[in-house]
Amino acid sequence: MKDDLFIRTKVPMTKSEVRSISLDKLQLQAKNSFLDIGSGTGSVSMQAALEFPELKIVALEKNPDAIEINQTNIKHFGINNIDLQVGTAPEDLPDEKFDSIFVGGSGGELSQIIDYSYQHLTDKGMLVLNFILNENALEAIDYLEHSDFTDLDVIQVAVSKWHQLGKGHYFKPQNPTIIISAQKGEQE
């Protein structure tokens, strides 16, 4: 889904290529429920909602500007399967099970969010986290390596787009993004 389809503000947005990889790692095919923690502009939730219209999506965001652009884009796309909730993680996270959880922002509560995710994912549920700061990614990797999550996978995506500059062209880089995915094993 192209980025220019979204109505944009200054709220940062997960870009198309990173969004595509993150959605693929969430494994949303034939899933029932999806939680987006720190949804930002909501681009991950909205693309998931449009690709999987039967999917029940809960998006949690605390930033008033992000809430406003979420609401604008939900109306813009005519989406009816996102429950946009105002709140902070982990205290305002819903007490229900999800097939997949995406973390776009942690507000400094990363270990608590990972613990919540393990407790609230269904068996074989997927957790996907995106980071631009190495320190946050390293904290998540260390915590996940010592958790009961399985199939830990860490990649860095560096996207550059063709851009005109005067008479020439160059590849204008976007922020590299670290994408971490892990699976909840079957409960015994």
Rank of each mutant, 00 (worst) to 15 (best):
T9I: 02
K10D: 14
K10M: 14
M13F: 04
K15Y: 03
K15F: 05
E17M: 05
E17F: 07
V18A: 11
R19F: 06
R19Q: 10
L23A: 03
K25R: 15
L26T: 02
L26F: 01
A30Q: 14
A30V: 10
S33G: 12
F34L: 08
F34R: 07
D36E: 06
D36N: 04
D36I: 01
S39T: 07
S39E: 03
S39C: 11
T41N: 09
T41M: 07
S43M: 02
S45Q: 01
Q47M: 07
Q47I: 01
Q47E: 15
A48T: 03
A49I: 01
L50R: 13
P53G: 08
L55Y: 13
I57C: 10
V58C: 13
V58E: 15
V58Q: 12
L60N: 04
L60I: 15
E61L: 01
K62P: 07
N63E: 12
N63T: 01
D65Q: 15
A66S: 10
I67M: 10
I67Q: 14
I67H: 09
I69A: 02
N70S: 13
Q71R: 14
Q71L: 12
N73W: 06
N73D: 06
I74M: 10
H76D: 02
H76L: 02
H76E: 04
H76Q: 07
F77N: 04
I82Y: 02
L84K: 01
L84F: 05
Q85V: 12
G87L: 02
T88C: 13
P90C: 01
D92K: 12
L93V: 01
L93S: 07
P94F: 06
D95F: 13
D95W: 13
E96A: 11
K97D: 15
K97Q: 15
F98M: 13
S100A: 13
S100Q: 08
I101Y: 06
I101T: 01
V103F: 09
G105P: 02
S106W: 07
S106T: 11
G108V: 00
G108D: 06
E109N: 15
L110S: 11
